[in-house]
């Protein structure tokens, strides 16, 4: 177990290292001289030179990467070009909103996909299966922000319980928190539910076809017990894997959904940096969201080991 954990951790570190190189490389993409850009168009030559040495822009790229990465590891991601606030501080303000949205959306997605995937798997090729697969095809083709707008149109403008925009932290009371999060979570959750439903359907249909499920039926267990105890748990492995893989999609989708509903998370932060070309903040968003994705995948790996005791023989014995 310990060896397995170490291996996965090492893999995660490699990924994060490559991501850090890519993220740092973003600053090299900017056309023109960043010093001029930062110092302003009307700056004198001396002012520009001062900015250049101040930011270390006169150093070789490798040196600049190392000092940037060394700072990043200690939690220093630089300061915003827009208001000089430390990037880490900005991110920590916004992260809870995005994480709340992502977790709520994941919950919505699981609530949708568990029953639908199960129903579809019971009779593969049956009418219900075909209806559900048409539904998922439709959902995957729907732009999530448009779905959000349609929900606002249908619900928020008619039912006052669902505010169209804004965010309340959990400390303001669970009711307000949930009401403000409901529509965005549904919007984002529908998209995530598609792949979950498809995976669960495929995995569960396979499991229901196995000899051990037939054995369970031959023992006289009732259909619901067979499904709950003998099938779902074994079908959970690919399902949980999808949950991990979806974290990235979910965080990406959160950007647009936050913009639609005016949630002050990483997404709206990213949106605002677009016009300001605030690269340090964007780099911070890239790093932070990737760390979340990598952490989620590590968690999935652990869950996988827990779900498949058969894999443990080598270590345990």
């Amino acid at each position: 177990m310990a060896i397995f954990l170490l291996k996965r951790l090492a893999g995660a570190v490699v990924v994060l290292f490559v991501v850090s190189v890519i993220t740092f490389g973003l600053s090299l993409l900017i056309p023109g001289d960043p010093a001029i850009h930062i110092a302003g168009e009307h700056a004198t030559r001396e002012e520009i030179a001062a900015v250049r040495t101040g930011l270390g822009l006169d150093q070789p790229v490798a040196v600049r990467y190392l000092s940037w990465a060394a700072a990043a590891v200690t939690g220093d991601l630089g300061t915003s070009l827009y208001n000089s606030q430390p990037v880490t501080e900005i991110l920590l303000e916004r992260l809870p909103v995005t994480l709340s949205l992502a977790v709520a959306a994941m919950a919505v997605a699981v609530l949708i996909s568990l029953p639908l995937g199960t129903l579809a798997a019971l009779r593969p090729g049956g009418r219900l299966d075909r209806v559900i697969s048409s539904g998922t095809a439709l959902a995957v083709a729907t732009p999530s922000f448009w779905l959000g707008l349609m929900l606002i149109l249908a619900l928020a403008l008619t039912v006052p319980a669902f505010p169209a925009t804004g965010f309340r932290p959990l400390t303001d009371g669970a009711g307000a928190f949930a009401a403000h999060l409901a529509l965005p979570a549904v919007t984002l959750g529908v998209a995530a539910a598609v792949e979950q439903t498809r995976q669960l359907r495929a995995a569960l249909a396979d499991v229901l076809d196995t000899d051990y499920v037939r054995t369970a039926r031959a023992k006289g267990l009732l259909p619901l017990t067979v499904l709950r105890k003998h099938a779902v748990r074994n079908a959970a492995v690919p399902f949980v894997t999808v949950l991990g893989l979806e974290t990235g999609q979910l965080l990406g989708g959160a950007v647009v959904v936050e913009a639609v509903f005016g949630l002050p998370g990483l997404g709206t932060l990213a949106e605002s940096t677009v016009t300001r070309q605030d690269l340090p903040v964007l780099q911070g968003i890239v790093i932070t969201s990737t760390v979340v994705v990598v952490a989620a995948n590590l968690a999935v790996d652990l869950a996988y080991r827990w779900l498949t005791p058969g894999q443990e023989t080598g270590v345990a014995a």
Partner: peptide, 17 residues
């Protein structure tokens, strides 16, 4: 492992809108 849309925004912003 970088969220797709976040990466797209970052690259597009760096290149200019």
């Amino acid at each position: 492992s970088i969220p797709g849309l976040v990466l797209a925004i970052a690259i597009a912003t760096a290149l200019g809108p």
